[in-house]
Amino acid sequence: MKRLAVLTAAAAFAALLIGALLDLPAATLDLRPLLAEAMPVSGVAHPVTAVLLNTRGYDTLLEIAVLLVALLGVVVASARADVTGDPGRTLAPPVATSADPMVSALARLVTPLAVIFAIYVLWAGAHRPGGAFQAAAILAAALVLLHFARIVPACAAPSRGLRIAAVAGFAIFLAIAALPLAGGALLQYPPAAAGLLILAIESGLTVSLALVLAGLFLLLADDPGGRR
């Protein structure tokens, strides 16, 4: 009975919303010309990067804060009685069981390439699709692969160095965002230096985001034979 009600409600919702989409009038506010106008002073040539880090930098700044809060939540939720007293200790000896030789070889082969590719994607973000988010995702995937090869152990709580690195991206972004406060508004970079500042922000973000994304996994990962 409940199932039927829920399904009916979902179907009615979808039908109404699709009906609304189909006869929606054209948007009265189009941001594309405004963005095209702002591109020359944004410091980058790729519109999506310009939106992310210049015209709507505020969203991105807060997004990094959200990610850090999520990581904090994972640290708290995955804390276990046997390790809470000793932050920074890695859980289980790193080599509990030997890794599959294929995975090991793959990880050793792919990781350097992933690092190079991530740097390229980060650099390319200024003038074509790419940027900090994608580079960070690639680095995080490489870290997860290294974990499967038993090279990077799962950790119970991030060490001090890792914690500083995870926050560094947000701190750099915040510092650069606050720089123009003396003469203008938050996040209003001087056009001449905008390209350089955005590259600095993105480099910090790449490292921090990669650590946060990989941390989401590594903090939760079960090491076979390590826990239990």
Partner: peptide, 12 residues
């Protein structure tokens, strides 16, 4: 841009 992020993050 989203495709790259989705393939790496969403699926991977």
């Amino acid at each position: 841009d989203i495709a790259l992020a989705e393939a790496a993050v969403g699926a991977g």
